[in-house]
Amino acid sequence: MAPGVERSFTAASTIEEALAARRQGASVLAGGTWMMRDPRRGVDLPEAVVALHRIPALSKVEVEPDHVVIGAAVTHAALGRALRGSAGFEGLVAAAEGAANPGIRRVATVGGNLCALDFAAADLAPALLVCEATVELQTFEGPRLLGISDFLKDRHALLTEAIVTRIHLRRDLIASAHIRLPLRQAGDYPVAIVSLAVDRNKRCRIAVGSVEPVARRWTALEQAMAAGPASALDPQRVAELALEHNDFQGRDGKEADGWYRRQVLPPLVKRGVAALLSTEGVAWL
């Protein structure tokens, strides 16, 4: 920032106000846990920021009988509290309550987690992928709804002229699980994440985070499972399929190489299926 220039900081109270600031070039500030580390990465903090925490609509979780709406400014801790005990959302709750560490979870938001472009290990991304969440954006042209998969793929371009406002979830899951693999018991970013869910049609959805730069559904494995009987939700059997259909290119990082991230996927899937089977929702199996 040039000397003498005062940083612009807008605490927007409406989405419109936030969008106006965004249009003038302000960067969106959520909890701050990612952006505040920019200087450490050698990136200057933005000259203008717009904070979303004062927009009431973005700071609440609405839990309805057939759907759930999560404001982008809801923290991980608040999301976990709101959905704890809701059948079908076990995985999302585990993601919200297992990410990073307790202090960060009280500050870091859902929107921030999805919009941190270089953050491959975001816990909520695979968890929301198996929820088949819809991302609501406010763009300069108006509101827009987008599937989470498409959002994650295109977010780099999308976010240049949009703000993530809400996440919409259908309540069509009967069970879900979220298996994260940090290198310690907890506290570091997971080197691999597997999220799983079973919907009302007894179809299994699986997503993988942190293994590749962006989280994605494990379509090959889902299809292989769909080809078998529903009763085939057997941990060992699914792990074998995972081994057979492992189409991930693991990313190399300081903490783990690509080989390792890829190698641990079948066992994580196995654990995930076991976790699914332990939920009430799949007692029918």
């Binding site: 605490a11 500030l29 909890g31 701050g32 904070a51 009280r106």
Partner: peptide
């Protein structure tokens, strides 16, 4: 009343 890390809290957010 919530315990949070003050290193990542910009003062703009504590208004």
């Amino acid at each position: 009343d919530e315990a949070v890390p003050s290193c990542l809290k910009p003062i703009g957010l504590v208004q």
